[in-house]
């Protein structure tokens, strides 16, 4: 009886599924394609590979690069983007001394309370403070940026596929819509209706190809690097800030892999011991030889 009900139920679900499948096949046959091609599906580019010293399971931080990246964030990105999960005290990990961290923190104005009147005011930051947001709230951010809220950057490289490479590609990926082509095909020829809205900027590395952020890094030397550091080209600045945001997204990343390898080494050793112990225990009851006769 259960088998009879089961067979009926199985046929019910399969017929319903085949009905859906049939409708899908008919729809595909009528429209003539599996999936409609859009400007996004045809011209969106995957991030170009970015070779950072922190990449991969053996990565380490390049502190000079992280400091340069922090400089780019502070002088360029911080005008619009917050970094709310990072505290000034965290910057010690980039190789800054206590005094330098204090000075960096004091260079930012953070929301505070007037000790005498109790009214809200701004005071110089302390190492225990977090990076302040450039806008008092999302509405103010929207109003100042053509109705787009600049996202917080703390976790940006973990919040996108291939995060570090994405940041670098995006920052260096602004193109002219009218001349942009992939494999000889021009956007304008394939999708004449595709356009960049007012205040938008064409960037094939952004998901929908039009990003509200104007190109932030445009000229060589926009940030003045300390003597002895690489030349501040747009590509170099973008790489450095991508490296910095890799650190902000996961400050414990290098420690994690550095702990991981000894753990794995120990486990390998312990597992070999366990294997030998198992063989020792089982030796007593293993058949002596394959029985031929």
């Amino acid at each position: 009886m259960i088998r009879l009900i089961g067979i009926l139920a199985g046929l019910f679900f399969s017929v319903a599924l085949l009905w859906s499948l049939g409708n899908g096949v008919v729809a595909v046959a009528q429209q003539g394609y599996l999936k409609e091609a859009t400007a996004e599906s045809e011209f969106h580019l995957h991030p170009r590979e970015l070779d950072l010293q922190s990449n991969g399971p053996f990565g380490t931080w390049d502190l000079a690069q992280l400091q340069r990246g922090f400089q780019v964030y502070k002088e360029v990105c911080a005008a619009c983007h917050s970094l709310k999960y990072v505290a000034f005290r965290d910057l010690k990990a980039l190789g800054y001394s206590d005094a330098e961290v204090k000075a960096i923190a004091a260079g930012f104005q953070v929301p505070g309370i007037d000790a005498n009147t109790g009214e809200a005011n701004l005071r110089p930051g302390l190492p225990t403070d977090y990076f302040p947001s450039p806008y008092p709230n999302a509405t103010a951010a929207r109003a100042a940026n053509n109705n787009a809220v600049p996202p917080d950057l703390s976790l940006m490289t973990k919040a996108r596929h291939d995060g570090s490479a994405y940041v670098h590609s995006l920052l260096t990926g602004y193109r002219d819509l009218n001349t942009f082509s992939v494999g000889g095909k021009h956007v304008k020829d394939e999708f004449p209706d595709f356009s960049t809205p007012e205040g938008g900027h064409f960037n094939p590395y952004f998901a929908n190809l039009n990003i509200a952020m104007p190109p932030p890094l445009t000229t060589e030397g926009q940030v003045t690097y300390a003597p002895g550091q690489p030349k501040a080209t747009v590509d170099q600045m973008s790489t450095d800030v991508a490296a910095f945001l890799t650190w902000t997204a996961e400050p414990k990343k290098v420690k994690r892999t550095q702990v991981g390898w000894p753990v794995l080494g120990f486990l390998l050793f312990a597992t070999i011991l366990a294997w030998m112990a198992k063989n020792q225990v089982w030796a007593a009851i293993k058949p002596k030889k394959p029985r031929a006769a």
């Binding site: 892999t257 390898w261 753990v263 225990v281 009851i285």
Partner: peptide
């Protein structure tokens, strides 16, 4: 001791895979 020993080895292999995931990816 037979299956505690055998499972002990299996646990070691499991932990290697799990910790590789946890610490590296």
């Amino acid at each position: 001791p037979y299956y505690t020993a055998k499972d002990g080895f299996g646990l070691g292999v499991f932990l290697i895979l799990y910790c590789a995931l946890l610490f590296l990816f």
